[in-house]
Simulated scan of single mutants.
Amino acid sequence: MEDQKLISITGKFTYVLFRSDQTMYTVAKFRTYDASEKTVTVTGSIPVPENDVLYTLSGSYVEHPRYGMQFQIAGMSVSLPSEKEGAVRYLSGASFPGVGRKTAQKIADTLGDDCLQQIRSDPECLRLVPGLSEKHIMTISEGIKQEDSGLDDLVRFLNISGIGYRNLVRLNRTYGAEALSKIRENPYRVIEECDGFGFATADKIAKSLGVSDDDERRLYALLVSACMDLCVSQGNSYVRYEALADDFQRRTAGLNADFDELLSQAVMKRQLIQEEERIYPVTQYDAEMYISDFLHQFPYKEINPCDMDHVYRYLDAMQDDIGITYDDKQKDAIRCLFDNPVMIMTGGPGTG
């Protein structure tokens, strides 16, 4: 490592794969705090890393013969991000194609911590940045115009709460200048109103705003999220009342939470649907109703039985023509299509 130039990466530890308490040698996953938000494997003798703390690691990338590319840690410190760092991350992000981190850093160094406000007020200030091309000036000017005001506040919020660049962009595009006021009003609204937000991220934002664990807004969002989590984990479109109540009580142990009152609110707001003992997330319920209505109204008609020998001869010819081969399961699925009025096919991408 001494012969290699040290570099620095900033981010958070997400998972410890291995740790020796005697030597402090640690192998962990580390998510970088930049526009890429990539996850890298890091190794080194370090103190126990804390959850949800921003660290700056110095070291170098090395190729492990068995485990591939890893970042070998030479030093570690808690990172205290500045407003300037937030501006650099923003300007080097996806909203400004072609503007890399070095260019963004040059802009921030030249214009200062309030560079985003300056650019929004007068894009011509970009001409003060040495060596900045006309293409970069146009890209940044147009990108800033597309993002509504309130951006500076969101950048500060990003640095305080560490919610990640992608979520910063989602919040700004959804709420614009009202982003922080909307979030402060109810941080859990982002689950329903912004793509890509789940309860964990919303709860993280709420905690940075000082929302208590027994806040009714939090308990309500937790209930709705718990219902969907149970459905997904069980592969069902609904969960039984008793199962949801037990799971919610487990998640809220020690808190003053009225399950039935919160469930009533969720049903009234049509975020959950209750049919007897069955509790549906509204998206699952609507999807199930759409499918059943579609099948009910489908114009069924009897067709003559199909000669499967003819079908298989056609498949053989097609396989030879386009250079593919169907396995036995795929052929069974094709036969099922001809033998049954309705067919449900599941599988990964490309199955259809």
Rank of each mutant, 00 (worst) to 15 (best):
S292Y: 00
R166Y: 00
N186C: 05
Q284N: 09
S181I: 01
L17D: 08
G352L: 08
K301E: 15
I191E: 02
S181Q: 01
F71A: 01
R170A: 15
A287R: 13
P341E: 13
E193H: 08
P187E: 13
K106P: 08
V232Q: 05
N167S: 09
S92P: 12
D52Q: 11
D258M: 07
A179F: 02
G150N: 08
E50R: 15
F248S: 03
L295S: 13
Q234K: 12
P65R: 12
K102W: 10
E277F: 04
Y15A: 00
G93A: 03
E63S: 10
P341R: 08
S60G: 07
M345C: 14
V211L: 00
V190D: 08
A74W: 04
I107M: 09
D320H: 11
R240H: 06
D3P: 06
S95I: 15
Y15H: 11
S79L: 09
D3M: 06
G75F: 12
K12G: 08
L209I: 15
E288Y: 06
V311R: 04
P305T: 09
K145A: 04
Y326H: 07
E261W: 00
V53G: 15
V129M: 07
R89C: 12
G75Y: 07
E302G: 04
V16N: 04
D52T: 05
D327W: 13
N167F: 15
T283M: 06
G352R: 04
R217V: 01
R120W: 06
V48Y: 04
K5W: 05
T174H: 04
D195H: 00
G112A: 12
Y15V: 08
R66M: 13
T56S: 12
D328H: 03
Y61R: 02
D214Q: 15
Q284G: 03
G348C: 05
P187L: 05
D309Y: 15
T39S: 01
E276K: 07
I160P: 01
L116I: 14
C227R: 00
L337V: 01
G86E: 13
G323N: 14
R251F: 06
V282I: 13
I137P: 15
S8G: 06
T346E: 12
V224W: 02
G235V: 01
S58D: 05
V42A: 06
P281N: 13
A266R: 10
M345D: 13
V239D: 04
D148R: 02
S121N: 11
L262C: 14
G198H: 02
Y15E: 03
Y175N: 02
I107E: 00
G98S: 14
K102P: 14
E261H: 04
E216Y: 13
